[in-house]
């Protein structure tokens, strides 16, 4: 599947961004009800054979090139948006291997991985990258292995260390987050990290989600369609830059400003059909959990 990338899109300033009809058709709209509440919408990542956003392990769409450029811009202003604790170095290489294997298998016309033992050559044609490196040797890459590959994928990532009967968020990259700070939350347990999310703890959502995640098995990926809405196609809705983006129009709630909605990660609980027409962008945040 050849993708017609739109490298000139922007996610700040003049907000040059639009979805093609094909992009709207492949969008995994989760809006099958009139009201929404937190739930455990995790499920096995069964590949769709009909194309669409569920066909690949890591989805690449027409916004790929522009989103990678936006990520690079955020990291240039704040390198702390990507941090990994030292004991997660093996997880960094695992991430690189998983994403490179997946992208090259799912999109062979755009990505190629050649391997001779630990000598690897990675080609990313949409970003014009051609990198020889030695797997396991961080000095052979321009960034740490995790940052190197996460800069070439859409959406945010976290690295979780399973120990003491929970998951510790011991690394990640967050340049398109809905109001959570990687540098503040680094090293937290699953429950601490999700502490500020309202209502869901009382419903037992995180207990069950943690139990599900700790049983995700290698070779059996799971997915969760996690979405937020913004008026502008702004990806950097970070708490770090909240003073910058908070002043703009940013969410639908009948014109009322609700501070708690911003703090809550803005998983909208109100979505009248009319809002869809008004929406400049609906950006899905599809997170796949892998081992």
């Amino acid at each position: 599947m050849t993708i017609a990338f739109k490298p000139d899109e922007t996610f700040r300033g003049d907000f040059r961004y639009a979805n093609s009809p094909a992009a709207i058709l492949r969008f995994p709209f989760p809006f099958d009800q009139d009201s929404y509440m937190y739930g455990i919408n995790m499920e096995p990542h069964t590949r769709s054979t009909m194309g669409g956003a569920f066909a690949a392990a890591f989805d690449v769409d027409e916004h790929y090139v522009a989103e990678c450029a936006e990520r690079a811009a955020v990291l240039a202003a704040d390198p702390g948006r990507c941090q990994v604790l030292p004991h997660m170095v093996e997880a960094e290489w695992d991430t690189l291997e998983l994403i490179m294997e997946s992208l090259s298998a799912d999109y062979p016309e755009h990505f190629t991985l050649e391997r001779e033992g630990d000598d690897w050559i990675w080609t990313n044609r949409p970003l014009s990258l051609h990198q020889r490196f030695r797997f396991g040797d961080p000095s052979s890459l321009p960034q740490s292995p995790f940052e190197y590959i996460a800069r070439q994928a859409q959406g945010d990532f976290t690295l979780q260390d399973q120990r003491d009967g929970t998951l510790y968020m011991d690394g990640g990259i967050a340049t398109t987050q809905a109001d959570w700070s990687l540098s503040f939350d680094l090293g937290m347990t699953f429950h601490e990290w999700h502490g500020p999310v309202p209502l869901a703890h009382q419903k037992g959502v995180f207990d069950r989600a943690l139990s599900y995640l700790m049983r995700v098995r290698y070779g059996h990926p799971a997915r969760r369609l996690n979405w937020t809405m913004t008026v502008h196609p702004r990806l950097d809705t970070s708490p770090e830059n909240y003073p910058v983006w908070g002043a703009g129009p940013h969410h639908f709630d009948g014109g009322q400003h609700r501070r708690d909605a911003a703090f809550a990660g803005r998983i909208a609980d109100i979505l009248p059909a009319a809002a869809l027409e008004r929406a400049a962008v609906l950006h899905p945040r599809l997170s796949c959990q892998h081992r």
């Binding site: 700070s181 503040f184 939350d185 680094l186 090293g187 937290m188 601490e192 502490g195 500020p196 708490p239 909240y242 003073p243 908070g246 002043a247 400003h257 501070r259 911003a262 703090f263």
Partner: peptide
């Protein structure tokens, strides 16, 4: 001052109160 505490950073989080409406 949010009741969100980082054990690693030994600090609570402060978030601007009037970012949306000065």
């Amino acid at each position: 001052v949010r009741d969100h505490f980082s054990r690693l950073g030994n600090a609570f989080m402060g978030v601007q109160i009037d970012a949306e409406v000065p």
